[in-house]
Design a protein around this nucleic acid. Sequence first.
DNA 1: TTGTACTGTAATAATTAATGTTACAGAATG
DNA 2: CATTCTGTAACATTAATTATTACAGTACAA
Lengths: 136, 136
Amino acid sequence: MNNGRFAISVHILTLLAVSEDEWTSSEYLAGSININPVMVRKELGNLRLRGLVASKEGKSGGSRLAKPASQIFMSEIYEAVKQQDLLGKGINSPNPACPVGKKINEHLDNLYEEAEKTLLLSLGKKSLAEFAKKFN
Amino acid sequence: MNNGRFAISVHILTLLAVSEDEWTSSEYLAGSININPVMVRKELGNLRLRGLVASKEGKSGGSRLAKPASQIFMSEIYEAVKQQDLLGKGINSPNPACPVGKKINEHLDNLYEEAEKTLLLSLGKKSLAEFAKKFN
DNA sequence: TTGTACTGTAATAATTAATGTTACAGAATG
DNA sequence: CATTCTGTAACATTAATTATTACAGTACAA
């Protein structure tokens, strides 16, 4: 899982939650996170795809939450950002001639899947609204 | 967290669990995992440090579990391998002039810590013995 | 006592992944 | 119709991961 992007996405969404009904520019978001605006736009693109934010092009455009912060959960952000599995799915190419090598990826995948379920359960209890409240 | 190394460590330990009372060479382990023996030795070094394996130098040397597979848990392996935190601690340097930027790392850290606790709880339920049994 | 089969580890190289940057087309506003 | 935004491609840079070579040291066994 890509940990840096999770932090960036939460940061973006928190800023949007704090000024929930304004269109915020990528430039402004980038300023708070201290990264390049293009990185922010890329991340916004992903969050948009996931239905977490909406963006408006053109002058006085920007981005805002696509739904109330109370209806966005950390598990959604986690899933939006992750591309790979938590502990790494089938990275190695173990020796198929070895009884352990032959089957290990399958069994590891099972293990990862279960662990991830637990993690999502935990993250699913925390809403963005709750998180953003800490910054008042 | 370094996902590839987790897979490698579990693989190594599973092989050692399967032939629990033999000294297994890094060459053999590397053959099943399909990576370089030196990588295996590095990983063994780490596992040794954590008290999970014992190694013997010299001819007819090798490695074996330092305690019964039934007393080794996936959470231990996870902790042995991880160096960084699950979702990535304080990677960015957010703008301290922004009320959100100023405090976000602290709040993210809290979130990560809790999530990781849950994960460890889940991984702590699975022993290496249980896992290795799947390969019979 | 010496050859052999191992480990341990340093140094370095190669590869891959993550992050950052520049550039510019297109949209909406005022 | 100039301005201020977004969206995205293409590319550059940096960092992390993984692999390799090399060799000293240890233990066994003939």
